[in-house]
């Protein structure tokens, strides 16, 4: 169809990726058990979040899974006012980055009132179930 000088495409494409997570299954198992897991290199001690199964510093290094405590502090945040199309049904959400006790940072939604948020406040990263899938979220520690 041509309208106002524009040809409207008759071909559509749905993109839905199939992403291998076999090697980081302990992370998702951990979420089901209420734990947030990271990987740690036994050789150099580096902690990786998001977890990865190779240590580029050591090449090779021997990796193990560790449970993160979850305790951390709020480094920055933003309330997303115009969300991507695929998040239109999620309601309002606030994205935050927190520095965790173990020295790694995580990015996740923070379940709190925007007016209560201050950089430096104590937060906790916890596992949660959402729409049949396990994910994780920050909570404010009062």
């Amino acid at each position: 169809m041509i309208k106002d000088g524009i040809f409207f495409d008759r071909r559509t494409l749905e993109l839905r990726y199939q992403m291998p997570v076999k090697n980081i299954e302990p992370f998702f198992k951990g979420l089901e058990e209420g734990k947030i897991r990271a990987t740690k290199c036994k050789t150099c001690g580096s902690i990786y979040f998001p977890p990865q199964i190779h240590c580029p510093r050591c090449n090779p290094g021997i990796m193990e899974w560790i449970d993160l405590d979850g305790d951390g502090k709020l480094e920055t945040f933003s309330s997303i006012e115009i969300a991507p199309t695929s998040f239109q049904n999620e309601g309002k959400y606030i994205v935050a980055i927190g520095l965790l006790k173990e020295g790694v940072r995580a990015l996740a939604w923070i379940d709190a009132k925007e007016s209560d948020l201050r950089i430096g406040k104590r937060i906790r990263l916890v596992a949660r179930k959402k729409d049949d899938a396990f994910t994780y979220v920050f909570n404010l520690v009062e």
């Binding site: 992403m19 998001p50 920055t76 945040f77 933003s78 997303i80 115009i82 969300a83 991507p84 199309t85 695929s86 998040f87 999620e90 959400y93 994205v95 980055i97 990015l107 996740a108 939604w109 950089i119 994910t135």
Partner: peptide, 30 residues
Amino acid sequence: IELIGRAGNYFWEFENFGLTFPAYYALHAT
């Protein structure tokens, strides 16, 4: 908005948390 929001770490940022291009810079602005 959808395509440009994916231009970071897709799996660990976009998939669960729906970042947008302005949001990445907003985190810096805050």
